[in-house]
């Protein structure tokens, strides 16, 4: 095989630059969804040229070829299987669908107290924002506060009640909630506070108050289209 000449290398280099120009130009065209495809295809061609000529794959023995190819093949395996998940998620579980209203605020770093410190105060992860005592109305039980309830639901309960995991009634499933609402609000609250079957006490969040729980149940009931008489309801 003749040694590659300077002219040969310059040819490859000019092709690479021309492809770069083409790629940038295509970015200015109205290609819509196809744009990423076009620019990435050009990148693949450029990569192929670099690997084949600048990295001597053209002359390489089989084993280095397999080694190089496996890097790309394994990348495709990873992308293929991960995108299988993202592409087949149900509509309401799609990444991005849940976003318009973020369910909770991330705590700034360091805001969560160090549990090893002496005055342990798990009580207030900013994530959950339980209703402070001062804002609570006198004389619970009272009417469920569904807007606060929705907040609690979205940060805690949704983990199971969002999809109906482990037998949890799905918020919005009228039939399931209909049956449960017959037991009465107080029974539901006590089950949720103390735990019932797969449901851990307070959904596994001991920092929530009974009022928070009550609100969340109220939210799930109203989301399922059920209104239920509550003892605090008399004034209304």
């Amino acid at each position: 095989m003749a040694e590659p000449t300077l002219r040969h290398h310059l040819g490859i280099w000019l092709t690479l630059l021309a492809l770069l120009g083409l790629s940038i130009a295509s970015a200015f065209l109205e290609l819509g969804e196809a744009k990423a495809f076009v620019t990435l295809s050009i990148a693949v061609i450029q990569a192929f040229l670099i690997v084949t000529f600048f990295m001597y794959m053209r002359k390489a023995a089989p084993v280095p070829r397999i080694a190089a190819a496996s890097g790309f093949i394994w990348l495709l395996i990873m992308m293929g299987l991960i995108l299988t998940d993202y592409r087949t998620r149900p509509e309401d579980m799609m990444l991005g669908r849940l976003l318009p209203e973020p369910a909770w605020e991330s705590p700034p770093q360091g805001a969560v107290p160090t549990p090893l410190a002496k005055n342990r105060d798990y009580g207030n992860p900013a994530a959950i924002q339980p209703t402070p005592d001062s804002e609570r109305g006198e004389g619970a039980p009272s009417k469920p506060d569904t807007s606060a309830g929705e907040r609690v639901y979205r940060s805690v309960c949704i983990a199971c009640h969002g999809q109906g995991l482990m037998g949890a009634p799905r918020a919005g499933d009228q039939a399931a909630w209909e049956a449960r609402s017959k037991a009465g609000m107080e029974t539901l609250v006590s089950h949720a506070v103390n735990g019932y079957q797969a449901m851990p006490p307070k959904g596994g969040h001991p920092e929530l108050s009974e009022q928070d729980i009550r609100g969340a149940i109220g939210h799930m009931l109203s989301a399922s289209g059920i209104s239920i008489p509550v003892r605090g309801d008399r004034q209304d």
Binding site: L81, T84, D85, Y86, R87, T88, R89, P90, M93
Partner: peptide, 9 residues
């Protein structure tokens, strides 16, 4: 939270 189709695969 993975999609059920991916889980089956």
């Amino acid at each position: 939270g993975q999609s059920v189709y991916a889980s089956v695969v």
